[in-house]
Amino acid sequence: MQKVIDVQNIRKEYGKTIAVDDISFSVQKGEIFGIVGPNGAGKTTTVESIIGLRKPDEGHVAVLGLNPQSDSKTLGNRIGIQLQHASIPSRMKVWEALDLYASFYERTVPWEPLLENWGLGDKRNAQFDDLSGGQKQRLFIALALINDPEIVFLDELTTGLDPAARHATWDLVSDIREQGKTVVLITHYMDEIEALANRVAIIDQGKVIALDTPANLIANLNAETQINFTAPRSFNAEELASVAGVSAVNQEGNHIRVTGNGPLLAKVAVTLAEHDISPEDLQSHRASLEDVFLAMTGRNIRE
């Protein structure tokens, strides 16, 4: 696999605060690479160092074989960026923004089809301020794609969007990868990374604390699946102990918790049905990246 981004031992301090403390990772061509961590972990500084907006105090960054500082113009033409805390003038129209940003690049794709693809065709004459949150984000993605970039950076893409708009945006990110582009996804949402990223760097307090595929990170936790439900007290929960994969059954009043490994939910449900028990609140909880973060830092990512 070809490396498109290579970050080696970068470090950045702001006064006495160490924003990035010896971070290294590389991104392969064609993957969706996630950078995840709590707010203030150093994600944005890391990305700004990669795209050349900031110069790290120490360390080395190469993007598409270029130095982001000295080759900034060449690099700028080959990457697309959607940045957090960045915007366009409130009275600029959608088509005007695309037309304007197209003039900044040496090579561009026609913006009309781009608008259609991103569901903004009927909004082309709308002013930026009149767009919904999801439409604004789609416009930002379209602006990041106007130069047909090889790598696309998407920073906190779905912050502030409602769940439906978030999931719609996820599909669009997958589409970008389908076009053969490399995507760097920066977020504090673990579910976004689980849904999209091929590999993820978890960053906390300026350091990479984990770097692997989301599935591996979760598997390495060796966490068991948990199933919770309520059942009448007359039901003897010990009946479930013999189900394949179940390692423990816990009954407190009418609350029952079953823990174990493997595809547990279907098997437990079958056994319950045999005893004419059909709880409405039957829920299964699998370990997630949030649990990975909790296990590694002792903190919840939202704290």
Partner: peptide, 10 residues
């Protein structure tokens, strides 16, 4: 952040 967005272009 309008200046910030412009700075992220060539």
């Amino acid at each position: 952040g309008i200046l910030r967005r412009l700075r992220a272009t060539p």
